[in-house]
Write a protein that binds this DNA or RNA. Sequence first.
DNA 1: ATGCACTCCTGAACGC
DNA 2: TGCGTTCAGGAGTGCA
Length: 270
Amino acid sequence: MPELPEVETVVRDLRPLLVGQRIGRVIVRQPRLRWPLPEELGQRLTGATVTAIRRRAKYGLIDTDRADTLLFHLGMSGTFRLLEGAAGKHDHVLIEAGGRTLAFHDPRRFGSLHLLPTAAAALHPLLRKLGPEPLSAEFSAAALAAAAKGRRLTMKALLLDQHVVAGIGNIYASEALYLAALDPARAAGTMTMAEAAALVQSVRTVLLEAIAAGGSTLRDHARPSGESGYFQHDFRVYGRAGQPCRSCGRPLRRFVQNGRSTFCCPACQH
DNA sequence: ATGCACTCCTGAACGC
DNA sequence: TGCGTTCAGGAGTGCA
């Protein structure tokens, strides 16, 4: 469940479970994720106390009092879940803390875990080139327009470029473009300043809505899985091909861009 | 520099 | 029931 709102929800759910807790055993059951897990993962984490949990783009950062930070990315199918009983299939890494066992569960194994020096975490190659956080003031109409200027790629592809703005994925790209009434297939370079302003606002709206929805949904479940938070969210266009546009009533359309599904209202978005 | 196809992996849903 | 095909929320790499 990998876009910014879902990672934010996971981070918020992990905080009360881990912050202030001393990490016990760390068991690696499957070291081959997106990148091989560091050999010293367990040694470095065991005995450390979690001091803070942060989010950057779609990454979560778990800081410890040993100046190490555990960086995680959920990929397409990653979740954290509290283990009840034995570890199951795809529970790749088990982390004991506070009398509980947390499992990093990821069937497709596109997720990743890294161990970084906390002080230099932002300099890591995976984080260094990320664009602004979409919910920060740094993500402005001027900044977006500047990033779009002269670019021939589509509006949708621009939003998915993590160097332009960090944290938007395939679902919320469609959602934001619909809310801003922008055609996903239009060249990004044709964006006016007024359209950039509308898109910035729409991105913020859909992300904040999703964070609110994820948080409330997850509270129904006693574990920080997050799966439910994603599926129960009510999307405006994503996954609704053929259904009526909530604005004009005409059928929504699905088409493929760069090998991925895009949903839009051909009548409302230009 | 820019844009895009390919690639990693498994599971679910669907058609025959 | 089983088998093959297609699709899925990510993103680094390498190529044109």
